Amino acid sequence: MKIVPLYAVPQHEQQITDWLWQAFGTSDSRDFFASIVATRQREEKMPLTFAAVEGEKLVGTVGLWRCDLISRQDLYPWLAALYIDENQRGQGLGEKLQQHVIEYARGLGYPQLYLYSACKGYYERFGWQYIGDGLDYPNTPVHLYQFTL
């Protein structure tokens, strides 16, 4: 398994769009997620989407974005849109994708990284520190996390 920028494997753009739309979107938001994925394919520039691939098969994705929570634009950059193919879950791929983004952000010189999640308990296992709650649009409570690089 290798983790590469999506621009290196553009054939997976549609699958990543569908994953993100189905996991995080609403019935009428596919075009919105297609736009998100398309704008995260610029070589060596943030925001970036990474793809985890085994051979030719896409098994997961994660992003490094300037902003993932509109109500907290004061925090950046963000680990965003972590998604693992259902058949690949429970094998440590989530941790590998997190670590890839952590190392990439560290290499860019950022002192910390942020993420938000509706669930609690998962990210703490990997060293993320809970820093409080926030709101996702329009009024969904979420948990905020920071990782010191």
Rank of each mutant, 00 (worst) to 15 (best):
Q22L: 05
T26K: 07
S29W: 02
S29V: 02
S29C: 04
R30M: 09
R30K: 13
R30V: 04
A34I: 04
S35C: 13
I36V: 13
I36M: 02
T39R: 10
R40Q: 10
K45F: 05
P47G: 05
L48C: 08
T49V: 12
A51G: 05
A51P: 04
A51E: 03
V53H: 02
V53E: 04
G55S: 00
E56Y: 09
E56C: 03
L58Y: 14
V62R: 00
L64P: 01
W65L: 09
W65D: 07
R66Q: 08
D68Y: 06
R72Y: 00
R72V: 00
Q73T: 11
Q73F: 05
P77C: 06
P77Y: 11
L79P: 00
L82K: 03
Y83S: 02
Y83Q: 03
D85V: 15
D85Y: 06
Q88F: 02
R89G: 06
Q91A: 11
Q91D: 10
G94Q: 14
K96A: 14
L97G: 04
Q99A: 12
H100V: 09
H100S: 11
A105H: 05
L108G: 00
L108Q: 05
Y110S: 06
P111N: 04
P111A: 03
Q112L: 08
Y114H: 12
Y114E: 05
G121F: 01
R125N: 06
R125G: 12
R125C: 15
Q129P: 00
Q129M: 06
Q129G: 01
Y130K: 11
D133S: 08
G134Y: 00
G134K: 01
G134F: 01
P138R: 00
P138Y: 00
N139F: 08
T140Y: 07
T140D: 10
P141N: 14
H143Y: 14
H143G: 03
Y145G: 00
Q146C: 13
F147W: 12
T148S: 15
T148D: 14
